[in-house]
Design a protein around this nucleic acid. Structure first.
Lengths: 217, 217
DNA sequence: TGGTAAAACGAACGTTCGTGCTATATACTC
DNA sequence: GAGTATATAGCACGAACGTTCGTTTTACCA
């Protein structure tokens, strides 16, 4: 491998670990010394990859976004556009958080709460990415309406807000009480709403819930 | 005033400031030096009131609980038990967060996210208090059912989870996007559910929403 | 094989953190 | 008014923080 490629490989390894630490201890609790220790490398060697702590934080946020897209967005988009894709977006999100790949649960829920009162580029990027997610959710709702699966009268922004809230609520309860029933409750609430607003054409899509979910990359 | 009373007065003033700082910067970002500076007193003089940072954190959590009870729980409990009290618990909570008394929004939402992966007495106390709140919400639902205002078939725990999620979601959106419509959305979602599950006796209680809300202590 | 540039290191910087120890004001008791 | 307990201040500590600097190791190219 070339010398240059080695640098990027290291950077990737650093960020991989950084995302895990930050999801649990926050982006501020993510110290360079701690990170270096975990990776068995020197502080200065690690630091050179970023130039400042803030840049490390932004890069970590970006890495978390890539993981989220790979693990949640992409698999959900394998479903056909409409009610099924909307449901999958919610369902896979919940499954992903529940799986416990990150010690601190949803990375963005954690760092959003941490940085919401801390102006700067880190906060701005986090806000952008979460808006991106909210838009994805909203778009899926509108598409389900266009496809004739969902009542066209309902307010897509309102419904997206509610789904996002239920997901955040499930993450919150799971992190605090380690109670997986929170995910069941969120799913129940979301499904209840989807079923209530579903048209005759859309309803059957949800009853045929696929039992085995393949989350390929 | 006695020498002893002076000590408690100072302690109270410290905690008042501490709650405000912690709601924005977190309980870890709440440093003793910063706190002393803000109160124009020495680090050591302030420190003597608590003995350790962890005790300061626990005391701050306790102070926040007292404020929450005074500003949200008590006013809501002035309403008669039943559907109206349940609604007031949600409504006043949202109003209180929206009012912006704390720079960081809901104190407990902030510190729960910060400490959910940090074992210790601080985390334990936060979890207890939030469970207390969830129970209050659940009890209000059950009471509304007993009073014949709300359909007895519905799962109180499930509904409490949903209401709490919507409140957290509103707080999250407001902190991140400074958009007060989030509160409108949360209210709409909660009211929609209350109206749907309300009995003939309960329904009228909500339509006579009092316009002027007095939040006396 | 010697030169070059990227990558990682080790040591130190100045600052801030939480936390002790000691001293000095202040108010209450006898 | 002397004695005592409480409240606050001053100063210093060891550790950890982000950051900088000069050096050494590594892998490619001529």
């Amino acid at each position: 491998m070339t010398r240059k490629a080695q640098g990027e490989r290291t950077r990737k390894a650093i960020l991989e670990t950084a995302v895990h630490i930050a999801s649990a201890e926050g982006l501020e609790g993510l110290t360079i010394g701690r990170l270096a220790l975990e990776l068995s490398m020197s502080k200065s060697g690690l630091f050179a990859h970023f130039g400042s702590k803030e840049e490390l934080q932004v890069a970590t946020v970006e890495a978390a976004r890539a993981i989220f897209i790979r693990e949640v967005i992409k698999p959900a988009f394998e479903a056909t556009q409409g009610l099924l894709r909307l449901w999958k977006l919610c369902d896979i999100w919940l499954t992903y958080v529940q799986s416990g790949v990150f010690r601190g649960g949803c990375f963005f829920a954690a760092v959003a709460a941490e940085f919401d009162s801390r102006p700067g580029p880190v906060r701005d990027r986090i806000a952008e990415i979460m808006k991106e997610w909210l838009s994805t959710l909203r778009n899926a709702i509108v598409e389900a309406q266009t496809a004739g699966h969902l009542n066209k009268e309902i307010d897509a922004t309102q419904l997206a807000f509610e789904f996002n809230s239920l997901e955040l609520g499930a993450n919150w309860a799971f992190q605090l009480y380690d109670d997986p029933r929170a995910f069941k409750r969120a799913r129940e609430a979301i499904l209840e709403r989807l079923n209530r607003y579903a048209t005759a054409a859309g309803g059957p899509l949800l009853s045929s819930k696929p039992r085995s979910r393949r989350a390929r990359a």
